[in-house]
Design a protein around this nucleic acid. Sequence first.
DNA 1: GCTGTACAATGAGAATTTTAGTAGTCGAAG
DNA 2: CTTCGACTACTAAAATTCTCATTGTACAGC
Lengths: 224, 224
Amino acid sequence: MRILVVEDEPKLLKSILEFLKTEDYICDGALSYREATDHVSTYNYDCLIVDITLGDGSGLELIKILKLYKSEAGIIIISAKDSLEDKIHGLELGSDDYLTKPFHLSELNARLRAVLRRKNYHGQENLKFGEIRIELSRKAVYLKETEVYFTPKEYELLLFFIANQNKVVTKTSIADHMWEDEYSFGSYDFIYSHIKNLRKKFEDSACPDYLKTIYGIGYKFELA
Amino acid sequence: MRILVVEDEPKLLKSILEFLKTEDYICDGALSYREATDHVSTYNYDCLIVDITLGDGSGLELIKILKLYKSEAGIIIISAKDSLEDKIHGLELGSDDYLTKPFHLSELNARLRAVLRRKNYHGQENLKFGEIRIELSRKAVYLKETEVYFTPKEYELLLFFIANQNKVVTKTSIADHMWEDEYSFGSYDFIYSHIKNLRKKFEDSACPDYLKTIYGIGYKFELA
DNA sequence: GCTGTACAATGAGAATTTTAGTAGTCGAAG
DNA sequence: CTTCGACTACTAAAATTCTCATTGTACAGC
């Protein structure tokens, strides 16, 4: 379940992303208009959460553009104003729901579930990939039928790879997803480190290592 | 026993919720139509209490929609008008009972019990989870056959965990559920504090600690 | 095939973050 | 005025994440 959150207030964006990640969504953030269109033109999202009171242009314009790229994605609008106008415009342009600041994060989650359900993504409870099984609601990872503990970063990374299975993921995109704001372009040592930990857990459980290194590019998670 | 109350008058909603909580129901509130459908699409309720004179649309419409999602849930209609028409319509659409404003909360409780009984939830008096037994009617908690006093917040938290057993509950959702009004992105110290108190009571009674910490995320209440 | 360079993997420990624990303040109820 | 529960502030402990130095590996050019 892939989500893009567009919000210009860094703190709020961060806490939304953190929360959604704890709820097992694969999500990215954009601080501006342009960043958002970049992301949308690059990745496939199932739902977009958009603050329409961004600084750099009309948020409703943005929605039109987003729709062009990704017409089947759900859209939830966030707004500070409770103005009926904006609400109506938003809904006319094809947003699926509307949320007024301030809001509870679990409220956002409820809307999100509703939107995704309306789009027939009945929230999956389990993920399977080869010998790996994940019970999302329990955050439990099973390798070959035995439960293995994964730290938050490891868990998130694993989910990310499964979401992008059979595709090459660049280190840049990994860094982008997992370390939103503060990733320094210098080295990817921290990625190597987490990759190593993942592989160690596979090995310790005699689980095949589905993670292929693509030299000079990144990784690919695939069977056999 | 999970209940959703749909009522657009905030004060009334609040007092209904408070009352139901003292009666040991796990309950959520919705101030509008849309909020209600969100909740219903997200959680499983055993009964819905719906004011059909909401501002944002016909309440009877709402009931139709609610039924679509969750046909086995009981429904009690609240209405300001005592019109026979609405009553008949409501019952036709599958509501189980009907209550006219103003009403006593104890009256609501009686209807609720009746509805739940009819649905074979014959007045669930006890909850059990491992070595924990709760007599809901008395708000009495037994750990390993000895009664232990739990403060109101501890009790509510315990019920929340039991209601969400075997699932990871994030700190955010705990905060959202237990401190609906005034929680702002602060620290989670108060959660830690209550968690500690719960665990202390388990320990003092030599009762297993079913509460697992999920580092960086929240907690999980499960056997073994 | 050999060699050099850039990239990737590894292991250990430092730094940071998160949680547990302790003590104490505040405010409401009696 | 006292008691009790709810919450806060602070310290300690635990766990995770990140850094860094080092070792190993793939690729390209010769």
